[in-house]
């Protein structure tokens, strides 16, 4: 394992499903505090990359190092999450039979062991944190509402609140603006930029205008490998990227 200053370090990662290479010798570096957008056509391997980083899928070969010391290929989802990698799914998944407050309580960094939870009562600190997050996501009024009764937009906000509660070092966000209006897209971009002040973020997205709005370094994936990297203007000028997106 190489020691590196990068927050997330992928080198030569290959994943194949029945002969089909979902990731092919992919290498990627995310610096601490960075926000990175990852784009690419369908089947480029974006979601598989997220799966590898969060421990859902084991790579066939390659290195995945977090924070310069943790070998993520040897850890499971729970370990990786505890190390400080949070993941937001494309479809908002909140706990539908729990109140907004309980959703946040479950996400709150700290207690995870089952035997500690049996007797645990929320501490003053925790209650304070919950109130704080509830006000950030502007859901104080709905805090005792069940997750199932929230609107789509409210669920998105709750999920962002849960990520804040989890307080990860690195945040993986999968297609956050799929199905959103332009206004919502703009708001989401603002929120992500806000979050990026204290956390590193990797955003996977199709939507070019959203990526432009983020205004960060872009990595283009194609057929499981990195095709190009740079600012959005640089990569959109790249002939190969144009070919991949527009067809030959």
């Amino acid at each position: 394992m190489r020691s590196t200053s990068a927050l997330l370090y992928l080198s030569g990662v290959t994943v194949s499903f029945d002969g089909f290479k979902a990731l092919n010798n992919l290498s990627l570096l995310i610096e601490p505090g960075e926000m990175r957008a990852i784009i690419g056509p369908n089947g480029a391997g974006k979601t598989t990359m997220m799966d590898v980083v969060t421990g859902k899928t084991r790579p066939d070969s390659g290195e995945v190092v977090f924070d310069g010391r943790a070998d993520l290929t040897k850890l499971d989802e729970a370990n990786i999450a505890t190390l400080g990698i949070g993941r937001k799914f494309q479809k908002p998944t909140v706990f539908e039979n729990h109140t907004v407050r309980d959703n946040l309580l479950l996400a709150l960094a700290g207690l995870r062991k089952w035997h500690r939870l049996l007797l645990a009562q929320p501490t003053k600190d925790e209650n304070h944190r919950l109130t704080e997050i509830l006000s950030v996501i502007r859901m104080e009024e709905q805090q005792y509402m069940l997750g199932a009764r929230l609107s789509h937009g409210q669920k998105q906000w709750l999920e962002i609140g849960m990520l804040l509660a989890q307080d990860p070092k690195l945040l993986l966000v999968d297609e956050p603006v799929a199905g959103m209006t332009d206004v919502e897209t703009e708001t989401t971009a603002q929120v992500l930029r806000e979050i990026n002040k204290t956390h590193s973020v990797v955003v996977v997205e199709h939507d070019m205008s959203f990526v432009r709005a983020l205004g960060v370094k872009v990595t283009v994936l194609h057929e499981g490998s990195m095709l190009a990297e740079g600012t959005l203007d640089q990569v959109s000028a790249d002939q190969r990227v144009v070919e991949v997106y527009l067809g030959r």
Binding site: K56, A81, T93, N97, M162
Partner: peptide
């Protein structure tokens, strides 16, 4: 109950289900 409703979500929150 959170494990019941969304097991993998709990794993990504760091719970050893």
């Amino acid at each position: 109950t959170a494990v019941r409703d969304a097991e993998s979500r709990m794993r990504f929150l760091g719970y050893r289900v």
